[in-house]
């Protein structure tokens, strides 16, 4: 059964056109020109319960807008959206109990107090029974290895520590649907990996559905078997991640490491793989040889390059 269904979703904003220059600015105080910006255009997709889906696209593609519509923060201009049987726009109590939205660039933790106080506050807001709260908190804390962290004021925590606590604050009510908007932004590689492992465990443990946007392709590769790619509000791909890679970049990549530390890469068609490897092995002595798919960053770059866009998902 589909847990999330989006049909012909369109979201438009009315934006004020601000011309450059002083005179033009003064003029615009009295005569405002508005234009309609279409952030999401006739988007349709559906997600089954328990799926982990990566939501990809360049900046301004409409990813965040879609996540906000799905979580009830924005109202669609046209089309219908259902999440867990609810119309998000109505912001019903039972709906909000079931979902969470994590925004890597915004925080809900109280800045001057330890995260534990935000947790207590969320416990009161979500009306979580004491025992359930304690269980969830200790489980999340051990999964994220929080330790005594939650007792230090938020402002003294590092970005990564803060993000871990943000996740706990967002998951205390054990939501079944997770909308994650750039949850790993700004974090170092090991912290990113830690959060990915955690999200996967949460997904398995609570059978939660995850829809995630990220600038880090490693997040998507590690977490999401399925990806939805949108560009300028349109759906451009929906399906298996490996198939997307094969479709856009059918070549395999052979990486050779020589004895002197030099590295060579060769992109070859799968049918030529054997012949190329044989040829390479008969040449100079090598220390290592690997065959891999091209990195997702390059796939994305190729996918959007045709459109003449600057691709920021790298």
């Amino acid at each position: 059964m589909n847990l999330i269904s989006v049909e012909h979703l369109t979201k438009e904003y009315r934006v004020h056109e601000r011309p450059p220059g002083l005179m033009a600015s003064l003029h615009s105080v009295f005569h405002r020109k508005y234009k309609i910006a279409r952030a999401v255009d006739d988007l349709s997709f559906s997600i089954r319960s328990g799926e982990r889906v990566g939501f990809l696209g360049p900046n301004g593609a409409g990813k965040t807008t879609t996540l906000k519509v799905l979580s009830g923060l924005l109202h669609p201009t046209a089309g219908t959206v259902r999440v867990s049987g609810f119309d998000p726009r109505r912001r019903e109590h039972d709906f909000l109990q079931r979902i969470t939205l994590v925004m890597g660039q915004k925080q809900q933790l109280l800045w001057d107090l330890p995260p534990a106080d935000t947790f207590t506050m969320n416990r009161a807001i979500y009306d979580i029974p004491k025992q359930e709260f304690d269980e969830t908190l200790s489980e999340l804390s051990s999964l994220l290895e929080l330790g005594k962290l939650v007792e230090r004021p938020t402002r003294q925590l590092s970005l990564g520590e803060r993000m871990k606590c943000e996740l706990v604050a967002a998951l205390l009510h054990r939501p079944k649907v997770l909308f994650l908007d750039e949850p790993t932004i700004g974090l170092d590689v090991s912290m990113q990996a830690e959060l990915r492992t955690f999200l996967k465990k949460y997904n398995e443990r609570f059978e939660a559905t995850i829809l995630l946007t990220s600038h880090y392709m490693d997040d998507v590769t590690a977490l999401c078997p399925r990806v939805i790619v949108i560009d300028r509000g349109h759906l451009t791909y929906d399906g298996d991640l490996t198939q997307l890679v094969h479709k856009v970049r059918p070549h395999k990549r052979i990486v050779l490491r020589m004895h002197d530390g030099k590295q060579e890469t060769h992109d070859v068609a799968p049918s030529d793989l054997k012949a190329t490897i044989t040829r390479l092995l008969s040449g100079d002595p090598i220390s290592d040889l690997t065959v891999e798919d091209p990195p997702l960053e390059e796939v994305m770059r190729d996918l959007f390059a045709e459109r003449g866009d600057r691709v920021t998902n790298s």
């Binding site: 906000k68 009830g72 939205l101 915004k106």
Partner: peptide, 13 residues
């Protein structure tokens, strides 16, 4: 101003 009102609107209260 900072857009964090979103967190308020996401709460079931």
């Amino acid at each position: 101003r900072q857009g964090t009102l979103d967190f308020v609107l996401l709460k079931p209260a």
